[in-house]
Design a protein around this nucleic acid. Structure first.
Length: 474
RNA sequence: CGAGGCGUAGCUCAGUUUGGUAGAGCGCUGCGUUCGGGACGCAGAGGCCGUGAGUUCAAGUCUCGUCGCCUCGACCA
């Protein structure tokens, strides 16, 4: 048995996940507890994510800024719900050098308060609105139990913050950015998501409403992959942000925030991975094509491999030739583990025929002509994307159940975790009751599912107000 | 914070019952042979056995303390 084999995913998914993170060299442990080192290969994936997302933000009119890392306690305290939500998990700075600070500073767990503090300084008139900001930073939340990518004490993310003249405009922004996230998840990451609204108990601290995209992982657990919040004018009132309106009267502006984090990388791993390791969506793969020379000491093999790499590189493909002294079999396994979408094998046999072997990470390999290899590779990359999306959709379809009763949920759970669509009366007691009796939690109230007449709450049997997706979650 | 488990080479671990020269596989370094699915030979490097005290002629092994990590609860985007 291969000593460095990855744990089979259906045997122990949690172990498999950690194995993949470590062995594919995405992250490594550090002596800083609860935090992770993102290694070059992992960071390169993140760079691709940030580049594409940042382009989408710019295209929707947003500008990048950077707020401080520290929040004075008095500033954090201003909005009551917000501080109650975050206070239990913030890290505090109490000393500057050797001197005790008069007012302690928290390390930002999120930056709403800092943005509010800034808005107050710069907004006077409706002419100053809207402000559409985003920042790419790290934040700190003092989590008790941590896992790579899914929950670590410090994590990289982007947080968009916008402020608007009217509630309607702010609400539209909230929904627009949720759509941006959903499009990114599906078109770029090949992760199908459900768009919906969070229940009252699950919404962001200080928000009027929270929307989320929910993805379903290979093992049937849900992952909140991105959130978008509408704040109304609550923060504006708490921070005393006012502007002079078109009617020459003072008014409070309306705000939003929205974010995705390195957790998306956890989503990629857990949605697309298999027993051989990582499988990366081509759009974010640091190496899209790896070229493995066979019998590379034979004349002409390496130059031909490099020639193919140059052609592909010129066509905009991220390509690598592995001319290390490892055996071809070792290289196949190595790049499969690292999730490289397409592999090209080139050996003496191919040279004479002007061919190479093109293998897809999602399965299948074929001899292909070296003429027009750029097009062949692009088709192959598209095929990998399509296969990933189809596989993820299939998994979600197989694991989604409609439930009328708690027994329906419990019975279905015996066949494995998944998503449960069930009606709910809107009472928090019933929401908790479902979790207590089945283990699944409310994920969101989906936009695209309607209640039917006569639907009753899955928990109490009274008239239902919402259709809700329930699932165990990361 | 509660309950359990584990600390020995870079990694995964054996050795602890019954105290007596510090081990294996993988990985790493060098040279050579290989190469279409995790190749092989030879030669090497690498350990205060988590840590402190005790028992003993002698402790990785026994006793007590302590620190760290993991799992399950609890808590929680």
């Amino acid at each position: 048995m291969k000593n460095d084999a990855i744990t089979a995913m259906d045997v122990d998914f949690a172990k498999w996940f950690t194995d993949v993170c470590m062995k594919a060299e995405l992250v490594s442990y550090t002596s800083v507890k609860g935090c992770m080192v993102i290694r070059p290969y992992g960071y390169a994936i993140w760079e691709n994510i940030t580049r594409i997302l940042d382009g989408m933000f710019k295209a929707t009119g947003h500008e990048n800024v950077c707020m401080p890392m520290f929040i004075p306690e008095s500033l954090l305290q201003k909005e009551k719900d917000h501080v109650n939500g975050f206070a239990p998990e913030v890290a505090w700075v109490t000393h500057g050098g050797s001197e005790k600070l008069e007012e302690r500073l928290c390390v930002r767990p999120t930056s709403e308060t800092l943005f509010c503090d800034h808005y107050k300084n710069i907004i006077e008139s409706y002419r100053d609105l809207p402000k559409l900001y985003n920042q790419w930073v790290s934040v700190v939340r003092w989590e008790k139990t941590t896992r790579p990518f899914l929950r670590s004490r410090e994590f990289l993310w982007q947080e968009g913050h916008t402020i608007h003249e009217t509630a309607a405009e702010a609400e539209a922004e909230t929904r627009k950015m949720l759509d941006v996230y959903a499009e990114f998840a599906e078109k770029t990451l090949a992760i199908p998501v459900i768009k919906g609204k969070k229940t009252e108990s699950d919404k962001f601290a200080g928000a009027v409403s929270t929307y989320a995209i929910e993805a379903l992982m290979h093992d049937g657990k849900a992952l909140q992959a991105g959130t978008s919040h509408y704040f109304g004018d609550g923060f504006a009132k708490a921070f005393d942000i006012k502007f002079t309106g078109r009617d020459n009267k003072l008014a409070y502006p309306h705000q939003t925030s929205w974010g995705v984090s390195t957790r998306l990388m956890g989503g990629i791993i857990m949605t697309h991975g298999d027993d051989n390791g990582l499988v990366l969506p081509p759009a974010v793969a640091p190496i899209q094509v790896v070229i493995i020379p066979i019998q590379q000491q034979k004349e002409g093999v390496l130059p031909k491999a490099q020639e193919i790499a140059d052609k592909l590189g010129a066509a905009g493909v991220r390509v690598k030739v592995d001319d290390s002294n490892n055996s071809p079999g070792w290289k196949f396994a190595e790049y499969e583990m690292k999730g490289v979408p397409v592999r090209i094998e080139i050996g003496p046999r191919d040279l004479a025929e002007n061919k190479c072997v093109v293998a897809l990470r999602t399965g299948g390999k074929n001899p292909e002509s070296l003429d027009g290899i750029e097009e062949t590779v692009k088709t192959a990359l598209d095929a990998v994307y399509t296969a990933l999306l189809q596989k993820a959709l299939k998994n979600r379809e197989n694991r989604t159940h409609t439930a009328k009763t708690l027994d329906d949920i419990n019975n279905a759970l015996e066949g494995g975790d998944g998503l449960f669509l069930a009606a709910w009366c809107g009472e928090e007691a019933c929401e908790d009751g479902v979790t207590e009796k089945t283990g699944v939690r409310s994920r969101c109230i989906p936009f695209d599912k309607e209640l039917s007449i006569g639907d009753v709450c899955v928990c109490c049997g009274k008239e239902a107000k919402h259709m809700v997706y329930w699932a165990k979650a990361y």
